[in-house]
Design a protein around this nucleic acid. Structure first.
Length: 516
RNA sequence: AGGCUCGUAGCUCAACUUGGUAGAGCAACGGACUCUUAAUCCGUGAGUUGGGGGUUCGAAUCCCCCCGGGCCUACCA
């Protein structure tokens, strides 16, 4: 994108002229530092109560040095108010000609400073006649970065320092996703979502660290991908002249670490899946996966309850959240119901140990599901029935347990029930939030399931069966992996749930979009 | 990939149904104003109506194609 003046808006050209004018006056439009010793929110908090009632308009003991972006400006002749926005919030600044010198006030401030510029203020805190806590720029006022692009207009109605109403005029979601930097400085709600996301992750990390699990980093670039069924992104390493895949899951590497003798490991990191985009899917997304030796999925359900209770409480000071008109209690013990029982409760059909034909009949004839066809295998049919009839109705946190083996090639066979595995998914508000199993550690069983899976995929995608099997992972299992429980939680979807966002794009800073 | 829907000034929108040459608020610019707060008052400039083609004397408006967005569906355990 060239910046020839013909392409610039009138406002952009004017700001460039102002920059030149500043330089001609010997004012650096991009100086180096500013000593900040206060932020908007803490100043407002401090003076909220009447004990700290600053003298009206007199320099007092409340000296502060602040910095931020100018938002609204209200100039009245020889004095002016503007709003200064820093990371913590917004505070009003008062500027007077007689404080700063007429030359600076009339020729620099009112002429060459604009909304969007980043400035530093040294002065003192006072309360205006209207009662608003305000910083008077009595001692110093400097430009810290000239803004050459006008920001979208922002207006706030405030009352006693409280923002009563936002007048944020960019409602275009595309603009907000593409120019997230603008969304962030203009919209405090956006900043709050990402602050909560960070707190969620650090609370989760603290929870896992406290239990002695080791945070590790495993390869993103993998010669064989696995641990989930999804199409991968493919890339190429030049020096080794070999194809590589971006990981679709961390699972197979983390389990190698259990073989290595680590008894509790976790990783919080990006996975990549080359699939479609939707409000629940971004091609790169963040997963937490955790594996603990000598435990099983029953134990992992208890741990998951504790983890999510801790995280929810950290964000809301309360385990009860509001989501899409529901009140959801993330504290307490959650219902645990086996997969086939849940289907029977919802449909009246007991499909445990039914064959493909019977399940197809139920799905198609009895339940009238649109998306089923006779080519689907047993796993696909059961999954379709489950996600159409059971999942949407589960609002309160619910563990669905004991999945059919066809759906779970990495989970250990159920210790009692034929055809099932020891697996659970946690469903909240109709969404899958966590997925976990007693991990399959029998290398022969694992090889058979890999091969069955690979044969099917090799047919569909016209590739070699041997290329699809992670032989090194099987080699590791053959050395012996302790019994273990594993858990995966999609951080983006959990963030959506806990911050009330309806699109994954609202919890990812820079979601993938088509190129402009 | 399919369905629905949208694209007009820096931002939010009107004019489209019923074709007549684009308008308002905010932002910007000039002026007044030293406790305002969506400041106010007076004045000014600002648009290839997403792009291309067609119909017409005349298209933001009607028709076709393309580009881009949003929502839904599909794919994605």
């Amino acid at each position: 994108m060239s910046s020839s003046s013909a392409e610039l808006s009138e406002q952009e050209q004017r700001r460039r002229e102002e920059r030149t004018e500043l330089e001609e006056r010997g004012i650096d439009p991009y100086p180096y530092t500013w000593d900040v010793d206060a932020h908007a929110e803490e100043i407002l908090d401090t003076f909220e109560d009447d004990k700290h009632q600053p003298d009206d308009g007199e320099p007092g003991e409340y000296e502060v040095s602040i910095a931020g972006r100018i938002t609204g400006m209200r100039v009245m002749g020889g004095s002016a108010f503007f709003d200064l926005r820093d990371e913590s919030g917004t505070i009003q600044v008062y500027v007077r000609s007689q404080d700063l010198g007429e030359d600076f006030y009339e020729e620099v401030f009112t002429e060459l400073f604009d909304i969007g510029d980043i400035v530093g203020i040294e002065g003192f805190v006072f309360r205006t006649g209207m009662g608003e806590v305000t910083v008077r720029a009595a001692d110093d006022f400097q430009l810290l970065a000239k803004s050459l692009r006008p920001p979208p207009p922002v207006k706030e109605e405030t009352e006693d320092g409280e923002v009563v109403e936002q007048h944020y005029e960019v409602t275009d979601k595309e603009f907000r996703y593409r120019q997230r930097y603008v969304d962030l400085f203009v919209n405090p709600d956006t900043r709050e979502v990402f602050r909560q996301r960070a707190e969620l992750i650090s609370t989760m990390r603290e929870f896992l660290d406290d239990r002695g699990y080791l945070e590790v980093e495993t390869p993103v670039l993998q010669p064989v991908y696995g641990g989930a069924t999804a199409r991968p992104f493919k890339t190429h390493h030049n020096a080794l002249d070999m194809p590589l895949y971006l990981r679709i899951a961390d699972e197979l590497y983390l389990k190698r670490l259990l073989v290595g003798g680590l008894e509790g490991v976790y990783e919080i990191s990006k996975d990549f899946r080359n699939e479609g985009l939707s409000r629940f899917h971004n091609p790169e997304f963040t997963m937490m996966e955790c594996y603990v030796a000598y435990k099983d999925y029953e134990w992992m359900m208890d741990t998951t309850e504790a983890l999510l209770r801790t995280v929810t409480t950290a964000l809301h000071d309360d385990p009860v959240i509001e989501f899409e008109d529901h009140e959801i209690d993330m504290g307490g013990e959650w219902t645990r119901i086996p997969f086939f029982d849940a289907i029977e409760d919802a449909t009246g059909f007991d499909l445990y140990q039914s064959d493909v034909e019977q399940v197809y009949e139920v799905a198609n004839d009895d339940l009238g599901l649109d998306e089923v066809d006779p080519d689907m295998d047993l796993g696909e049919l059961l999954d379709e029935i489950f996600s159409e009839t059971v999942e949407p109705a589960l609002i309160e946190p619910t563990f669905i347990t004991d999945y059919p083996i066809e759906l779970s090639p990495l989970a250990k066979k159920h210790r009692e029930n034929e055809g099932l595995v020891e697996r659970f998914e946690l469903v909240v508000a109709g969404r899958e939030i966590a997925n976990a199993f007693s991990e399959l550690n029998d290398p022969q069983d694992q090889r058979e399931r890999f091969e069955a899976q690979a044969r099917q995929r090799a047919e569909e995608e016209d590739v070699d069966v041997s290329d699809l099997i992670d032989e090194d992972f099987l080699r590791a299992l053959e050395y012996g992996m302790p019994p273990a429980a594993g858990l995966g939680i999609g951080i983006d979807r959990l963030t959506m749930l806990l911050t009330g966002q309806e699109s994954i794009r609202d919890v990812i800073l820079f979601p993938l979009l088509r190129p402009e």
